[in-house]
Design a protein around this nucleic acid. Structure first.
Length: 870
DNA sequence: TACACACGCGCC
DNA sequence: AAACGGCGCGTGTGTA
């Protein structure tokens, strides 16, 4: 029997800390929280002004129950009496006010609930064995931080709450009223009230899919079969409003509720009027979800003056943290976690029994949104970040919405034809692979990485290959990814075949396992882009844009109807299937080598030699038709050309071949972000080009030693900045906070990427995307006879636009004027040039590095347009 | 059956 | 020893 470790701390303490189980250090020192977990707690307590003597410290299992130190391995038969004993120990305390269970097991022992990651920070009541009500605030066990370091922030936030709550006994939970079953008259009353009093009106819709159960008749034995569940169309079933955090008003929008067409229509009329009130509106993720839903033709409920999005406001506070409402709520409000029951839209059947509770939750969400927005407003104000929100988030809502709802057209016959062909190819390959393996290596659709692994590493007895990234538990998994397969093909050509291709790009021996696997992967990935389900009935594809975590790039994903997909990653090979709007051509405008210029501008600031600084700045500012960085790199790497180092501008070296230029391009990119040769060789292997890790290192080192040694200095300066400030700021004032990150090479690499990525993302958004969207609206008003030009896609450093040929030139001119303005990157001013491409589809035909004359440009634009009509 | 996770891979 | 960063989705698999 292991030795019981005694509790410590005064029995009279107001605060009680309940841990889970003692581990190695605790056993050795005979004291709870004696090891690294205790040290972590001590550091948080120091931050918030507590110390260990403030607590009565105990554990659910007050001894080391297993050698693995895992509470999860303690059997229930052993755990239950320990929990019982814990309750008794707590009952023996004089007058505890607040108990802090750390970790899931401790929380479950006290309040019977699970899922600490969701419930942490909430405020609960515990009735002890003497009938006393004691406040409980569960938090994460410090040991969890060793696996998930980014949780540290929420732990510290919890401890701030705990120290504040230690001052009073009562729970102080928010009291709210949720009005959920209104009559039309109630709705009008609420409208009047909101019209007169609301300064900020928050709203939230619910869009479950309709669920129907189809009777399956009787079984042979005469028993009723289980009805089949069919998911129907998603639709808005209610909308809730709140303008004071203690009251919400929810209007159902179903016929089941109103029972009458006219009543429902009147309800919608009031809904629209509420959304049209002049006061500011707010919501959680509303610009990306609720608003596009409300704009759907069957609802026609546009939102006026949408200003405050609690998700975006939270994004300003910390872009890399979570933004889910229940998480924000746990940090900034006293509302306990209330999404216990799944509120996933497709889980509505769980709610059919208690639709009123569903509406109440909608109401609660609205109240919480109001509270969050109030809290965020205070924060933005006190941290001088209000303008940052108003400059970088708010103005993007409309352009994002317009691009999202407009979408991109696809050539449907081509799409369907290619999809069928690719799927057929996959099936053929699956059959051939099954013959090789003696068993199927695929599931219903795709190759199974597991089965493929067994085939390669057991059947064929090839040496097992492991992935680079470690899993959460620190192990590496067997991998069969493309690079691995290609590497194995190089080493074992007799078993796997080679990836050598002929002039048409076909494998020389296509029926060997290696080429089959590669061909399958390729066909499968392409077929996904063509899959029917992605496209809406009107033959267009729509995505949702949202703000990416750290760099303010936009991220693209499935849209609000749950169709569409990420539109920032379609394979280049399939882009010819994307076509312009009716009456338009495609114009794509992209910032020329933007991130590389940015890096050079920063690097020039740390150059010691003024001549070097001059060279770097000249290259950062060079016109794309007068300087070719990649040819320069290849000329240096392959021909040791000294002029490639010294010349301000370097455009041509006839010795440089296309593959050489391409490899130099990859090597330059690798150098900027501190990639290593082995990784570079893998990246390049994907293109079927073999270089060794050593050769990769040589290329990178050539660039870094001889071409841009200042990049190394710049990276060192980034490390310094992170070390000094624990954060980085870009040229637009965007800050990324590293307070709770471990200093590591990984973090530094993230740092190297941050400035160029975010500088360019924000440049394109603020000087490109936003003004361009407004300009296109003006342009179409000025040219009412023409089809309006529309932005189809935002691609981080490029905009894809459908435009009638007449408007292509004005748009190009406008974007050049707006984007080609100097900006300071560090102390150095640089203009990043804009390049234009034109085409009948997204695989554009003509690229202008040097701006042509208007006449030349328009001739081409009209030429493309005329050819399309034929 | 539903869910969470691992894997693989597309682009900038 | 570990060896760019930033995203997203679809599929297979194991588990509850």
């Amino acid at each position: 029997m292991p030795r019981i470790i005694p509790d410590d701390g005064p029995r009279t303490a107001r605060l009680v800390l309940v841990g889970e189980m003692d581990a190695t250090h605790e056993e050795a020192q005979h004291r709870h929280f004696a090891g690294p977990s205790g040290a972590k707690l001590t550091s948080w307590w120091r931050t918030v002004g507590l110390q260990r003597s403030d607590f009565y410290v105990t554990n659910v299992v007050p001894y080391r129950a297993n050698r693995q130190n895992k509470i999860g391995l303690v059997p229930w038969a052993e755990l239950a009496p320990n929990i019982e004993a814990l309750h008794e120990r707590l009952a023996a305390l004089t007058d505890p006010w607040l108990i802090i269970p750390t970790g899931n097991t401790a929380m479950r022992a006290l309040i019977g609930k699970s899922r600490i990651s969701r419930l942490r920070g909430s405020i609960y009541a515990y009735r002890d064995r003497r009938g006393r009500m004691i406040k409980v605030i569960p938090t994460i066990h410090p040991a969890a931080l060793f696996r998930t370091p980014y949780w540290e922030k929420r732990c510290v936030m919890d401890w701030y709450r705990i120290v504040a709550d230690a001052e009073f006994r009562e729970l102080r939970l928010p009291e709210r009223e949720h009005f959920i079953k209104p009559t039309i008259a109630d709705c009008w009353d609420f409208y009047e009230d909101a019209r007169q009093r609301a300064e900020m009106l928050a709203f939230d819709i619910e869009t479950p899919r309709k669920v129907t159960f189809i009777d399956q008749g009787l079984t042979k034995k005469g028993l009723p079969k289980k009805p089949k569940k069919v998911l129907g169309q998603a639709r808005i079933t209610c909308i809730g409003y709140s303008f004071e955090s203690h009251f919400s008003f929810t209007i159902p929008t179903t016929m089941e509720y109103w029972r009458d067409e006219l009543m429902l229509e009147e309800a919608w009329k009031i809904i629209r009027l509420l959304l049209q009130l002049p006061c500011a509106k707010g919501g959680q993720n509303a610009y990306a979800f609720d608003i596009p839903w409300l704009l759907e033709p069957q609802y026609r409920a546009p939102v006026r003056n949408f200003l405050w999005d609690s998700l975006c406001m939270n994004h300003v506070r910390d872009g890399r943290d979570d933004h889910a409402m229940h998480y924000q709520q746990s940090l900034y409000t006293r509302e306990p976690y209330h999404k216990d029951e799944a509120k996933d839209p497709d889980e509505i059947n769980k709610w059919t029994a208690d639709i009123e509770q569903f509406w109440r939750y909608n109401g609660k969400d609205n109240c919480v949104t109001v509270e969050l927005i109030d809290e965020h407003l205070k924060w933005l104000d006190s941290h001088n970040m209000m303008q940052f929100y108003l400059d970088n988030y708010y103005p993007l809502f409309k352009p994002m919405l317009r691009a999202m709802t407009h979408g991109t057209r696809i050539n449907q016959p081509i799409r369907a034809r290619r999809y069928n062909k690719l799927r057929a190819t996959c099936i053929t390959i699956q059959d051939k692979l099954s013959l090789w393996a003696g068993e199927a290596l695929h599931g219903p659709k795709n190759l199974s990485p597991k089965k493929l692994g067994r085939f390669l590493y057991e059947t064929l007895k090839l040496p097992p290959q492991y992935s680079r990234e470690r899993k959460a538990d620190g192990t590496r998994s067997l991998t069969t990814n493309e690079v691995t397969v290609r590497r194995l093909m190089l080493r074992f050509p007799k078993k796997l075949g080679s990836f050598e291709t002929n002039k048409e790009g076909e494998f020389v021996r296509p029926d060997m396992p290696g080429p089959l696997i590669l061909a399958h992967r390729r066909s499968d990935v392409l077929s996904k882009f063509y899959a029917d389900a992605r496209y809406d009935a009107d033959g267009r594809i729509r995505c949702t844009y949202k703000f990416g975590p750290s760099t303010l790039r936009l991220a693209s994903s499935k849209n609000w109807r749950r169709t569409g997909s990420n539109m920032q990653n379609p394979d280049r090979e399939m882009r010819d299937a994307f076509i312009p709007d009716e009456g338009c051509i495609i114009a794509e405008f992209d910032l020329s080598l933007a991130e590389d210029r940015c890096v050079k501008a920063y690097a020039a600031a740390v150059a010691k030699d003024p001549r070097r600084k001059e060279v770097l700045l000249a290259r950062a500012r060079a016109n794309p038709w007068e300087n070719d960085e990649h040819t320069r790199g290849a000329s240096l790497i392959y021909y040791n050309n000294q002029r490639a180092i010294t010349d301000l501008l370097f455009a041509a070296d006839e010795r440089v071949t296309k593959p050489q230029r391409y490899l130099a391009k990859r090597a330059r990119h690798a150098s900027n972000y501190d990639m290593h040769g082995s990784r570079l060789s893998e990246e390049i292997l994907k293109d079927g080009i073999v270089i060794s890790p050593e050769e990769g290192d040589q290329m990178i080192n050539t660039i870094l030693d001889r071409d841009v040694p200042e990049v190394r200095l710049w990276q060192a300066s980034i490390r310094q900045e992170i070390l000094r400030n624990r954060c980085l700021a870009n040229s637009w004032g965007l800050v990324v906070d590293y307070t709770y990150d471990r200093l590591s090479d990984e973090l530094y690499r993230e740092g190297y990427a941050f400035k160029p990525q975010s500088d360019i993302a924000m440049l394109l958004n603020r000087w490109g995307f936003v003004p361009c969207d407004r300009f296109l609206i003006t342009l179409s008003k000025q040219n009412p006879s023409l089809v309006p030009a529309r932005i189809n896609l935002q691609m981080h450093d490029a905009l894809v636009i459908s435009t009638p040929p007449e408007l292509a030139w004005p748009i190009y001119t406008f974007l050049r004027q707006s984007l080609e303005r100097p900006r300071h990157y560090g102390p150095n001013k640089v203009i990043i040039p804009l390049e234009a491409k034109l085409g009948a589809n997204w695989k554009t035909e003509i690229e202008y590095k040097k701006p042509p004359t208007q006449r030349e440009f328009e001739e081409v634009a009209f030429g493309i347009f005329d050819r399309m009509k034929k």
